[in-house]
Simulated scan of single mutants.
Amino acid sequence: MTTPPAASTTPATPTTPAAASPLRIGLLGAGPWARNTHAPALAAHPDAVLTGVWGRRPEAAEALATAHGTRAYAGEAGIDALLEASDAVAFALPPDVQAPLAVRAAEAGCHVLMDKPVATTVEGARAVAEAVAKAEVASVVFCTLRFAPETVAWIAEQAAVGGWFTARAQWLGSLYAAGSASEYADSPWRREKGGLWDVGPHALSVLIPVLGEVTELTARRGPADTTHLILRHGSGASSTVTLGLSAPPAAAGMGIELRGEHGTAEIPGWDGAQPAFRGAVDALAEAVRTGVPHACDARFGLRLTELLAEAERQAG
């Protein structure tokens, strides 16, 4: 087993004064994820105002902005104008497009609500974490299970129970199975990096707060893009994780099971991405208001990137 290096950046401790309510949030990204989750959740949030949409394709940004009664921004100047008009920005962009723009947003004094993974390189994720810490802005990384009402409560309950001996997590999608018509399959970064980087952050974002920091990691490849992980945690517990996006439809599914002194516990289902994203907006607003970093912030996003990069290196 290999012990992955720990994040070296200083913990972010945002001290920016609480922003006026509602929080003005701009959206960077106008693809399917932004259209299906971010924009409708922001537009309907009672404590947020969607200040505008910027996209790499101006026509997509215009269509999304029009659908939600806000303004479209275009080009490099449009990014700066949207940052100027916003207290915070949400990202629905590929990770290595997101990372430098998150640095830019933090440097402009905007709080950041990022998608997972923050970046696909440790250097990219570290630059974000350091920019957030230096600017003293709030940050949240949108790992769905950490913010869906049903699963966030379950995670807190299991962390409080303790005494866990081992865990098993499995997230197998059929995005790249024969006959798949998902619009998310067209994502170049997702096809290149596979399930490890796409759904791996979700699994790790549950296991770490319950079982403790990952102290040892072993990774091996399975069929297609499938990756198997064996993890040792700071609590002494171990876990196994199977991740992939190419399973046959009949084999696809997600589950996380814990076993320990008090028996077993299985993660519940949740009601889609939009409620979870609303929870992430709430978490960002709370961090802005209180100055207390959320546990799933840019620094945690860096740690996830370190673990995923080490797993990718080992799996080859």
Rank of each mutant, 00 (worst) to 15 (best):
V292D: 08
S246M: 09
L204D: 00
P268Q: 12
S239R: 05
A219C: 06
D96H: 08
D47T: 14
V53G: 08
E136C: 10
L50K: 07
Q98K: 06
S86K: 02
V128N: 11
E107N: 09
A287Q: 05
G78N: 08
A153D: 15
L83G: 01
W54Q: 10
V122W: 03
V49Q: 15
E136I: 07
G236Y: 03
A108F: 05
A106E: 03
P94E: 09
V103H: 03
R146H: 06
T305G: 01
A178H: 11
A127V: 13
A125M: 13
T290D: 11
A18V: 10
L82F: 08
G195W: 04
A48K: 06
A138F: 06
P223Q: 11
L175Y: 05
A283N: 10
V206G: 03
R190D: 02
G31V: 10
A30Y: 02
L50E: 09
L42D: 01
P223D: 14
E84W: 07
P149F: 05
A72W: 01
A90Q: 03
L307I: 06
S174Q: 00
T144V: 15
T151Q: 07
L204F: 00
S180T: 06
R35H: 09
G179Y: 03
R190N: 07
P201Y: 00
L304H: 00
A167S: 07
T151H: 04
R259W: 12
G55M: 07
L243M: 02
Q274A: 11
S238G: 12
W270N: 10
Q98T: 06
G26C: 10
G109N: 04
A135S: 11
G163W: 11
R191K: 15
E136P: 02
P209W: 12
W33C: 04
H294C: 12
L245V: 09
L243P: 00
R303M: 00
R259K: 12
P32C: 03
V49T: 15
L196G: 06
E261D: 14
G236A: 09
A247K: 02
C296N: 13
L82I: 08
G291P: 09
G75L: 04
G31H: 09
L211Q: 01
H68W: 02
L113A: 02
F142G: 03
Q170S: 11
G75T: 05
G173L: 01
E213R: 15
E261W: 07
P17R: 05
E310C: 02
P46V: 11
D47C: 10
I155Y: 07
G272E: 01
H233P: 06
A287G: 09
V103L: 02
A160K: 08
T51S: 13
A295I: 10
A273E: 12
T51R: 08
T13N: 13
T16R: 15
P4N: 07
E192M: 12
P46A: 12
T240C: 03
E183L: 06
E306D: 00
F165R: 15
H233D: 12
G26E: 13
P149K: 04
F300K: 01
E266D: 13
P249W: 05
E213Q: 14
V199D: 06
A285S: 14
A224K: 15
A30Q: 01
L175R: 11
